[in-house]
């Protein structure tokens, strides 16, 4: 497809949109490298004259911020970073694997009847806050509260409708005859699904994985109410940078937020080529 040059008007509109979209990101990155005196200075300081990495150091060494006369950070963020990585990747992997198998079952074998897809989705129809407290009680009784297993179980259950639905739509797009041709060619049913369809929905699989990972990575409510001291995730830690003496530590919060964005940005760049590729073109007559 030939690339048409943009008109000046369109270019301006696009620039405006980019500025609006990226401004919060710019501001949080700037705040992350501001010394405490600049955090909420008035008039606002856009770009710090003396940028510092002290906020980042404070994440892992709570005493670091004292060189600016600010104290009261009680705990390093190390555990919450590791906790987020562990809980989110495990939950995402489980959700996508189970979702993929469900998607194939529903798409190819109408597993559970025609209503199954909607039934699965209906699990997402009530607000999470409504079930958070019951889960605290149930999880307390079965010793799953304040454990990663419990949090991961909730994350898988909460994201499974999305992964199933997204993957089902990708599987639906692959004509079943391609799999059936492989079966007639001599492959077993399972191998036909996995070796024929999986490569064709690779883009969709990456997109789904990223989406589910973002959901898990930024989840706050359950991570808050289901944790006491043994587990913690980044969103919960973010809320804890409030001290008695210095108020909210905006710079440290910003530093942790910037750190939390990094894996998402990297993942987005890595798979951007897969996100919009039509792999099935020419497979069948339409």
């Amino acid at each position: 497809m030939p690339v048409r040059p943009l008109s000046w008007f369109l270019l301006l509109v696009l620039l405006g949109a980019i500025v609006i979209t990226l401004f919060p990101t710019f501001w949080i990155v700037m705040t992350a490298i501001k010394p405490p005196t600049d955090w909420n200075a008035a008039p606002a300081i856009w770009i710090p004259s003396k940028p510092t990495l002290v906020n980042f150091r404070t994440l892992f060494d709570p005493e670091a911020i004292r060189e600016y006369g600010v104290g009261g950070v009680s705990q390093a963020a190390t555990m919450s970073v590791l906790g987020s990585i562990f809980a989110s990747t495990t939950a995402t992997a489980l959700s996508v694997i189970i979702g993929l198998l469900s998607a194939i079952g529903i798409s190819r074998y109408s597993s559970g009847g025609r209503a199954t897809p909607l039934l699965i989705l209906s699990g997402r129809m009530f607000p999470p806050a409504a079930i958070a407290v019951p889960f605290v009680i149930i999880f307390s009784n079965i010793a799953l509260i304040d454990t990663y297993s419990g949090l991961i179980a909730i994350y898988v259950a909460a994201t499974l409708p999305f992964s199933t639905w997204m993957l089902k739509s990708f599987v639906d797009e692959i004509p079943r005859e391609i799999e059936e041709a492989a079966m007639v060619d001599g492959k077993s049913r399972l191998m036909a699904h996995l070796t024929v369809t999986l490569p064709l929905i690779r883009g969709g699989l990456f997109a789904t994985t990223l989406f589910i990972f973002i959901l898990n990575w930024s989840e706050f409510l359950f991570a808050l109410v289901l944790s006491y001291t043994n587990i913690e995730t980044i969103p919960v830690r973010l809320a804890k940078y409030v001290t008695a003496t210095a108020g909210t530590l905006y710079g440290v919060q910003a530093a942790l937020a910037v750190l939390a964005m990094v894996p998402l940005v990297i993942a987005g760049f890595l798979i951007q080529n897969h996100l919009a590729r039509g792999m099935t073109f020419g497979a069948v007559k339409r």
């Binding site: 005859e177 391609i178 059936e180 041709a181 079966m183 077993s188 064709l200 497979a283 069948v284 007559k285």
Partner: peptide, 17 residues
């Protein structure tokens, strides 16, 4: 299907794209 030793040509061909 794999154990029947048949070949089939589908109406939409079903080539591996």
């Amino acid at each position: 299907p794999k154990d029947r030793n048949l070949a089939m040509i589908f109406d939409n061909l079903a080539l591996y794209p």
